[in-house]
Design a protein around this nucleic acid. Sequence first.
DNA 1: ACCTGAACACCGTTCAAGT
DNA 2: ACCTGAACACCGTTCAAGT
Lengths: 191, 191
Amino acid sequence: MPETTKEQLITAASTLLDSGGQEAVTLRAVAERVGVSHNAPYRHFRDRSALLAAVAERDFIYLRGAIDRHGEGSDAEVALRNASAQMIDYALKHQARYRLLFSDPDLSPGPGIKDAAKAAFQAFSRVVSRCQGEGVLPEIDTVRLTVLVYSTLHGAIDLELGGRSTESGLGSIEATADLLFHLLRRVELGE
Amino acid sequence: MPETTKEQLITAASTLLDSGGQEAVTLRAVAERVGVSHNAPYRHFRDRSALLAAVAERDFIYLRGAIDRHGEGSDAEVALRNASAQMIDYALKHQARYRLLFSDPDLSPGPGIKDAAKAAFQAFSRVVSRCQGEGVLPEIDTVRLTVLVYSTLHGAIDLELGGRSTESGLGSIEATADLLFHLLRRVELGE
DNA sequence: ACCTGAACACCGTTCAAGT
DNA sequence: ACCTGAACACCGTTCAAGT
């Protein structure tokens, strides 16, 4: 069954984000790609930012699924690496979309997006929690630990996407994430 | 002695970034603030992005000084917290400017910026190195460790500036940085 | 309910002149 | 060397109609 016009607009915006970044996503270009007039999008979205919000919501739902799918079966440490790899893979293949979801301060914070983002965070949190159970990560508050792990992952990704990694002296997002996991496994909390 | 027109343009762009973000920095608004015609900026900068690059370079130099200034005297752990606090303070007070320096993929990577950014990174790295000497941070490759620490700090800052922290479950950049430092102090490398 | 075409205000950038 | 004013192409958004 074919996509509705609204879905086509979201898909077109996603494609334009991938090929030309935020500035390439003009409502005129989106409309032309779908084959409607330059202001037809206003029948489906309040404005440009609402269209971008719809792209973000769809991708948050995808990411939650990707994390859940790759965080099962294998042991906890492998699941953590797989979940991280999913985020990194998405970020590298869809740079402007990753930044839209996790960095853009202008992203409209509607309830649909908040729920989808929260669900993705919780999926990541479940993997962190399993690692704590297997002694791979320290036994501290799971939410705070997830925020720490994801802050590091996001920081490494964002610096890389912004081209700040080579300038600063090192590359590879995975290397930074692996170093964090390596060190956290060796934390002795003391009693 | 008064600022040259070029310096006034950089100052005006910085002020507009603080008050209205990237989108508020139109060359027309910048020019009007300085009191010149709407295309006078082209006599001093190749285009809009060159003006923003000049803002970034000036701020990288400021940050390097702030880190050096607050990373002396006191013991290494205090210096690390002070250097981090300087970055956080700058990020919160000048959100759009922080994002311009550390996130924007469109920032023109001229040699002046690269050098200024590298100098700021090295200032931070010296503080990390001192912490290693005092046993506060693990004795691994200093550059890799600095990249890890700064990735976490940047990730926490960027998620906060983007409004993604409260959605995800927690706040406070300092809390995340402190947790990292707390855990890294308890790493047992084994021999 | 969904789409179209004209129009408005705004922007980056260029160009021909001015001093 | 530095600045100005007119002009161009492009954009988000609105509005009055069309089916």
